[in-house]
Design a protein around this nucleic acid. Sequence first.
DNA 1: ATGCAAGTTTGCATCATGTGCAGTTATTCC
DNA 2: GGAATAACTGCACATGATGCAAACTTGCAT
Lengths: 193, 193
Amino acid sequence: MTGTQGLRERKKAETRLAVYRAAMRLTVDKGYENVTVEAIAEESNISRRTFFNYFSDKADALMYGEEERHRRLIAAFRARPAEESGWTALSSATLELFGSIAEPDREWIARTLLARRHPTLLARQLANLLELEQQLAALIAERDDDSGVRPRVIAAALLSSMRAATNLWLDDDQARSLPVVMSEALDALASRF
Amino acid sequence: MTGTQGLRERKKAETRLAVYRAAMRLTVDKGYENVTVEAIAEESNISRRTFFNYFSDKADALMYGEEERHRRLIAAFRARPAEESGWTALSSATLELFGSIAEPDREWIARTLLARRHPTLLARQLANLLELEQQLAALIAERDDDSGVRPRVIAAALLSSMRAATNLWLDDDQARSLPVVMSEALDALASRF
DNA sequence: ATGCAAGTTTGCATCATGTGCAGTTATTCC
DNA sequence: GGAATAACTGCACATGATGCAAACTTGCAT
């Protein structure tokens, strides 16, 4: 009864997570450029060389959490009723995940704050977001049976607006809650400009 | 009649441009990972060390052209009549620049194709685009006298839609012209979802 | 035009990154 | 239990990126 996979797979997953966590911990308190791969490896009880078997990069390790989050958004999108349009399904799924009631995922915030301070990380985060966008665009195209530019525009516009909302929320020191700012962004987007 | 600045400034600008061009030339024909900073430096008649005085990176050097382009978009935006709304001014400026009549800037296309092949470059391009987005959002906020989320949403949605349009255009092997695809994207964005 | 101040380029030293390779160790599966 | 397979590790090596100090170039005041 190993649950999902063999020991091998499970250990790999655990190590991966451990490395990610170690990277986060060290980066948050020492600052991105003051953490070496060496240090992360040591903190996770693996060799420097092995680190590179798991992640291509310091940045890659930190982005692990982001990828998990993206998988969850895709799952939420897929779980929406089939009769919903791509737009409706995606905006709902997004609000479910990113704007959930009152607990905006401390790790995600930590990563986002790191990305704001470190151009390298920001760039990587954006690249990941683009990948998500493209997957979502494909799913929307399927849902709406539209092979044109529209699904891509919906995915791009929606995700980037959520990013913008997050930034405003962080800039304004969280005066209003994140879900509120996000809904506002969605309204701005959904109404004619 | 030095035009703009002293010799010093002019030489720096020339060198900068020369390094950028050398980087493009080498990268386009040998592939990103097969070009060393050493090689770029040599091609531009400066030392390896001096390269790093100009650019922080191989990627940075290649993105020089992108920055020039962004400056032009901002200028085009500013040049729009003051009575136009932020949305109108930006979409018009964008079409002027990115969708100009029939000559979509070969260097820009070359950079975009490079970015599609090389994740590092893609990430950097996106980071640059975000910077542009934020500058534009600020200008829109000013024009529309709106300090809320709306200007940010407009800038984000519009730029990311243009990016999506560009990608579709490239994917479909340029069956339709870029300006056409972009207009279509704008329509999709401007009409309710 | 001359010479001093300020800015630029360069080589050198140094540490971190990232990857190929080969030997060792751990796990799977029969 | 033992062969096959996969993962981990150390080492070597090329490249990347940055500080530093010496050499050189440009700007500017006299």
